Structure formats: structure tokens, C-alpha cells
Amino acid sequence: MHKSGAVMAWNVFKFCRALRGLGSTTILLVLGIVGLTYYAVVINTYWPGLEAGRPEALLSLAVLILFHCLLAMLLWSYFSVVYTEPGIVPPNWRPKVDEERGDTDPLTATEFSADLKNRRIRFCRKCNQLKPPRCHHCSVCGRCVLKMDHHCLWVVNCVGALNYKYFLLFLFYTFLETSLVTLSLLPHFILFFTDDDIPGTLGTLATTFLAFVLNLAFSLSILGFLIMHVSLVTSNTTTIEAYEKTTPKWRYDLGRKRNFEQVFGTDKRYWFIPAYSEEDLRWIPALQGLEYPLKPDLDVQEL
């Protein structure tokens, strides 16, 4: 019985590692949806409306400008998540302070060995290395990730300390873009059911219909996902930590303003782009994924 359970666990992790093979496929799928939407909105619907003398020329211009601006930010955020390392544990990393006890002094060799034995300092048996605070092992990537939130197949990467902001911006701009597409194609979608003589070929009509349905579905699903992550940011919690928390007094909850700054930084000029100012990277250790200040009024014994 024990042996079969071990085999089952091994098969599960084998499947997780196999998910890495979907990488190029999911990227192509995302680009395919973007291409389909671009054809339906720009080439097939609103670009022809720019012709001189048409009454809808001003509306077409406004839709096209907004569509391309949101698309540029969406793709910038998306590929920033894809190609940014989520945060890996530095070689031979050792804790400088005992986060669990709130101790600010460096650990002695004796204290370090005792805390490791008592599991106050976490150790990853798969990576054979120590795990910093808020670090978790990803079975898909096969490595430990700093402040890991989850592994996302859509971005073919883990979402962690160094790319979480980029992931949130990807959700934000995707929601705005899909909502814009849904609203701009809604009148044409209604024509499918109210007008028997719709202009256009069967292929263009099918493309418009499919683009509307896909973008409506994505906008509704991403809205729920976005709301969930906004609540996580305001409480300074990751998706994994939300399921693991056993106490209502979360040690890393510093208040909404400081929690927000630990993800987006303090420089407002960088809040809506997938980048950080050099000053924020220098003065906010949480953006590096290794050091996180604790809630000041939290009783050490409650940790």
C-alpha cells in the first residue's frame, strides 16, 4: 500500500514537469487569439470606417487608437512576465535574521543548527537548499521560487517576487482590452440575430462572431481573477499563502499602502508599466524577494 502511494506521488510530479512542454503552445495560442481579435476589430470592422465622409469615422479613430494603446501595454506586460525570472534562491543562501522569532541578530552556528532541526528554518529536499521566507518549490519548474504565487501556463512561467507586478498589469490590460473589444463588436454581434442581410463574407462574419465570444468570456473570467489578486495585494498575501494561513493576524500585512508599495513600488510614474525605478529597487528590499518587514504590532509569540 505504501509502495503504490509512492508511485502515485511520483506520477503526479512527473506530470507537473511534463507541463513545461506546453510552453510554446500556450504562447502561440495567446498570439493566435490576439491575431484573431486584431483582424476582427481593426481590419474587418473599424479600419474601413476611417474612409472620408463616413459618419462613424471619428468613432472608428477613437476605437482604433485606444485598441492599439491597450494592445501595446498588454503585450509589453505579457512578455515581461514570460521572460522575467520570478526569483530564484541565491547560491549558498543563509538567513541573516530569524524571521520566525522576530530576532534581529545574526544566527550563530548553534542557533542555526537548532532552528534547522526544529524546522524554524525551512529546507527544500528537492533542491537540497535552504528556503528563504515566503519561498516555495514549483513542481513544474523544478526549482524554488521567491515569494511564489502560482505557476501560470498562460505565461509559461512561475509568478513570483520579481514578475508579480508584471502579471497583475497583464491581467489589468487584458481586462481593459477584452472589454473594449466586447463593447466595440457588440453592435455587429447583435446584427447576427436581427438582420438577415449582413454585409461581409462568411469568413469575416465568423471571425467577428468568434472574436466577440472569446473576448466576452475572457473579460468576465479575468475580472474575477483580477478582483482576487487585488485583495491579495492589499493584504500582502500570495495565492499559496492564502490557502496556508492559519491565523487572522498575517505577519506581513503592513497596511494597504505599504502592501501596495511592496508590489508596485513608490514611484507613481512606474505603477502602470512593467518596470521599476532604480530608487525603488534600491530602497524596497521586498522587490528583490528575499527580505520582508514584519507587522510592527504583531506579538512575537503569535508567530
Rank of each mutant, 00 (worst) to 15 (best):
L74I: 02
P133R: 12
K268S: 11
R119L: 14
C135F: 00
D115W: 11
K14M: 15
F123A: 07
E241D: 13
W283V: 08
W283F: 13
S113F: 11
C152P: 00
H229A: 04
D98R: 08
N215T: 06
E261P: 03
V63P: 00
N215M: 04
K268V: 01
T194K: 06
A206C: 11
T204M: 09
T37N: 01
A161T: 04
L168G: 02
G289Y: 06
E279C: 08
G200V: 09
L146P: 01
V42T: 11
A217K: 04
A109G: 04
I121P: 00
L185A: 12
Y243F: 13
L287M: 11
W154V: 05
Q288C: 15
A52V: 05
I273V: 12
L171S: 01
D299E: 13
R143G: 12
V30P: 02
Y243P: 01
K147W: 00
F212P: 00
L169Y: 02
V159D: 00
A217T: 10
V159A: 02
F172K: 00
G289T: 07
T182S: 12
T26A: 14
F15Q: 07
G142F: 13
Y46L: 01
E111I: 12
T194F: 02
T237M: 10
T110D: 10
T194Y: 02
P248C: 01
H137A: 15
S179V: 11
V34T: 10
Y38M: 09
H136A: 07
E56W: 02
T84F: 10
F260H: 03
D280W: 02
P55Q: 09
T26R: 06
I43R: 06
C127E: 08
L107M: 14
W271N: 06
S80W: 06
F192E: 14
A217F: 11
D98T: 09
A275I: 03
F209N: 03
A72N: 08
L290Y: 03
Q262R: 10
M1H: 14
F272Y: 04
D115S: 13
V159E: 00
A18R: 12
G49P: 01
V12N: 04
V81R: 02
F225L: 06
F192W: 13
V159G: 00
E261V: 14
K147M: 04
F264R: 04
Y270A: 03
I27W: 09
T207D: 08
A52K: 05
T194Q: 10
A18Q: 14
K126Y: 15
T25V: 15
V97P: 02
T246C: 07
L61S: 13
L28V: 12
L146V: 09
C138G: 11
F264N: 05
G289K: 05
Q301K: 15
L176A: 11
R269E: 08
S184T: 11
P199L: 08
T110L: 13
T37Q: 04
V81I: 08
I284C: 05
T174H: 07
D253T: 03
A9P: 04
E51I: 07
H188V: 09
R134Y: 04
E51S: 12
L191R: 14
F193I: 13
F218M: 14
E99M: 10
L61I: 14
Y78Q: 09
V213H: 06
E51L: 12
V230I: 13
M228L: 08
L220M: 05
D103I: 06
